[in-house]
Amino acid sequence: MQPTKAARLLAAGAALTALALLSACGGGTPQHENEALASKAPVQPQAKKQQEDVLPGMPPVQDPHDLYAADRPGLLSPAVKDFPSRVYVPNTNSDTVTVIDPETYRIIETIPVGRQPQHVVPSWDLKTLWVNNDLGNSLTPIDPRTGKAGKPVAVHDPYNLYFTPDGKYAVVMASMDRQLVFRDAHTMKVVKSVPVSCYGVNHADFSMDGRYFIVSCEFSGELLKVDTARMEVLAQRKLPLHGAMPQDVKISPDGKLFYIADMAANGVWILNGDTFAEPAFLATGKGAHGLYISRDSREMYISNRGEGTISVFDFPQNRLTKRWHLPGGGSPDMGGVSADGKVLWLSGRYNSEVYAIDTRTGTELARIRVGSGPHGLAVYPQPGRYSLGHTGIFR
Rank of each mutant, 00 (worst) to 15 (best):
R115E: 05
G57C: 09
I100S: 00
E52W: 07
D95S: 15
P56H: 07
Y88T: 00
V121N: 09
P84H: 08
D71P: 00
L67Y: 06
P78V: 13
L129E: 03
T92E: 14
V121I: 14
P60C: 01
Y88K: 00
D82T: 14
Q46I: 02
G114E: 01
P112D: 10
H119C: 08
V99H: 00
W130E: 12
I100W: 00
S77I: 09
T92Y: 12
D53M: 04
V120Q: 01
D125F: 15
Q46E: 11
A47Q: 11
E103N: 15
Y88E: 00
L76M: 08
P90E: 09
E52T: 14
P102H: 03
V61L: 07
H65S: 13
A47W: 14
P90A: 12
V54T: 14
D66W: 07
D82V: 14
R106Q: 15
K81M: 08
Q62D: 07
S77F: 05
P64H: 07
T110P: 04
K48I: 09
S94I: 08
D82P: 08
H119R: 13
R115F: 15
D53L: 11
K127E: 09
D66H: 05
R106W: 01
P117K: 08
A47D: 04
R106P: 01
R72Q: 12
P112R: 06
P78T: 02
T104Y: 03
T104W: 07
T96E: 04
I108G: 13
P84Y: 12
Q51T: 12
G114T: 05
P59F: 12
P102C: 05
Q44G: 00
P112N: 04
V61W: 09
S77H: 13
T128R: 11
W124T: 02
D66R: 02
Y88W: 13
D53Q: 09
R115H: 11
T92R: 14
P90M: 06
G114F: 15
V97S: 04
V80H: 03
T98D: 10
V61E: 02
S94H: 11
P64G: 04
I111A: 08
T98G: 03
L76F: 11
E52Q: 10
I111W: 02
G114R: 05
Q62I: 11
K127I: 02
H65I: 02
A70F: 01
L67T: 00
